[in-house]
Amino acid sequence: MLEIKNIDVFYGDVQVIWDISFEVKQGEIVALIGANGAGKSTTLKTISGILRPRRGEILFNDIPLHRLEPYKLIETGIVHVPEARRLFVEMTIEENLDMGSLKGEAKKEREITKQLVFELFPRLLERRRQLAGTLSGGEQQMLAIGRGLMGKPKLQMFDEPSLGLSPILVKDIFNVIKRIKEEGTTVLIVEQNVKLTLAIADRAYVMENGRIVLQGTGESLLNNEHVKTAYLGV
């Protein structure tokens, strides 16, 4: 479904991604894990076209994303739920959801999808006329995920969805992500919470210093010695 082939990414003259290749197959949850600064978010930003690879290809159902205008990404069926949520804080919850469904099919089915999102997150329904900036951190993350779902994605990419949330909320968010997968959306997730992420991931890639150093199924990585010592603290 999504193929990343040998990409190099630079910030100015500094190379931050070194020859990364991986793939996401339909129906999977694939995780990129690693420490702060390993290049996980950079990889997602490159997929969504905010950054451009200097070398290599990114193909989504054979569409070359590395040559696509960033605003056309959502029309291919990829929705990127960005790091730190990036909500439109001075717009209402409902307006934020509307912003998630500007194009094509998603726009036509806006009201139907909105009901599904409200079913998934009843809190958002209660507060739909409130400004997004007045929500708590957990509610904001729910809204960010909901806004992503409004685009009716085939592939939904999550960048650090657990960032800054309490442990209970983190569990809730991961359950939601599992549910999204069960309903047929493919998921690519970037996380620092390695344990929980590997528990829900079908496959995962471990990134260190801009390179992929390990890959495998979620379960096999949970039992990997390197992962255990470096990320799980056991």
């Binding site: 969504s48 929705v79 912003m99 685009g151």
Partner: peptide, 21 residues
């Protein structure tokens, strides 16, 4: 939608881009 896109772009340009604006 156009009006909302204008406000969204003013608030967060990159996020608006990700929404397909």
């Amino acid at each position: 939608d156009t009006g909302k896109s204008i406000r969204a772009t003013a608030q967060d340009l990159d996020a608006a881009l990700l929404m397909g604006v």
